[in-house]
């Protein structure tokens, strides 16, 4: 098999809540690898820390321990757990994409511009960027009469597809997917599945959480099962 693009060694995340003087572990002992052109699926019960792994990689969470080794386009191995903020921002812009369950966007921006934004940020010509956004919105079956409308008023499923399109458009080298089909109907889910398959063919490495075991069966090349971290430890109060 080809070299891994991402290797996680013994990742753990614990939140320290000052107000309640509590440590809350949300993931522990996670080790896994992700390869170009392949999809690694994270499975496990609620509370097993699946999203905490993705957020740790993207650095939305500060990892508590472990190494998150990413092999960059330039060929360097970067420990994302310790990398500087500017370096993380640059990787987010150029190499690592994250499709979360929520869409944060500005109220005036049309769906097309919301989707095209990662391309604008990379300096792609706006005409070309919008063209690619339209193509992707069509592929994900977002009705064309919505393309020029801000997504604020869209249904859950429509918003999710816009969010997905935005995550996919820049063709990152590593794509993190957190339940990308959670609120989609079967027909649209099929479109997304096809799209993910085509992304694999282009060599994109993916680490994903899916709601349905069926999608794991169809899309995953590797499966990593997480179990919930050890229970909350109450700290002594003085």
């Amino acid at each position: 098999m080809t070299q891994a693009i991402l290797t996680i060694e013994d990742y753990a995340k614990t939140f320290h809540l000052h107000e309640r003087n509590k440590d809350i572990p949300s993931a522990s002992g996670v080790s896994l690898s992700v390869y170009p052109g392949r999809l690694t699926a994270l499975i496990g019960p609620t509370g097993a820390g699946k999203s905490s792994v993705l957020k740790g990689i993207y650095r939305t969470y500060l990892p508590s321990s472990g190494r998150i080794l990413y092999r960059s386009k330039a060929g360097n191995v970067i420990d994302l757990a310790k990398a500087g903020e500017h370096q993380i921002l640059e990787l987010r812009k150029q190499e690592i994409g994250f499709v979360t369950q929520f869409l944060y966007c500005l109220p005036r921006k049309s769906a097309i511009d919301v989707v095209a934004e990662p391309l604008f940020a990379r300096g792609v010509d706006s005409h070309e960027a919008r063209g690619r956004a339209e193509k992707l919105l069509a592929q994900l079956a977002v009705p064309s009469h919505l393309w020029n409308v801000p997504p604020a008023t869209f249904s859950g499923g429509e918003k999710q597809r816009v969010n997905l399109a935005r995550g996919l458009i820049a063709q990152p080298r590593l794509l993190l997917l957190d339940e990308p089909t959670a609120s989609l109907d079967p027909a649209t889910t099929e479109r997304v599945v096809e799209h993910i398959q085509s992304l694999k063919e282009t060599g994109i490495a993916m680490l994903a959480i899916f709601h349905h075991p069926d999608l794991v069966r169809r899309l995953a090349d590797e499966v990593v099962e997480l179990s919930p971290p050890i229970a909350v430890t109450e700290l002594s109060k003085d």
């Binding site: 939305t60 969470y61 500060l62 903020e85 921002l89």
Partner: peptide, 21 residues
């Protein structure tokens, strides 16, 4: 100080935790 999404989702300081909550 930190990445904005990290400050909002994983604030480290007691004050920031209260602010976000």
């Amino acid at each position: 100080s930190g990445l904005t999404d990290q400050i909002l989702e994983d604030p480290q300081h007691a004050y920031t935790q209260r602010l976000v909550a």
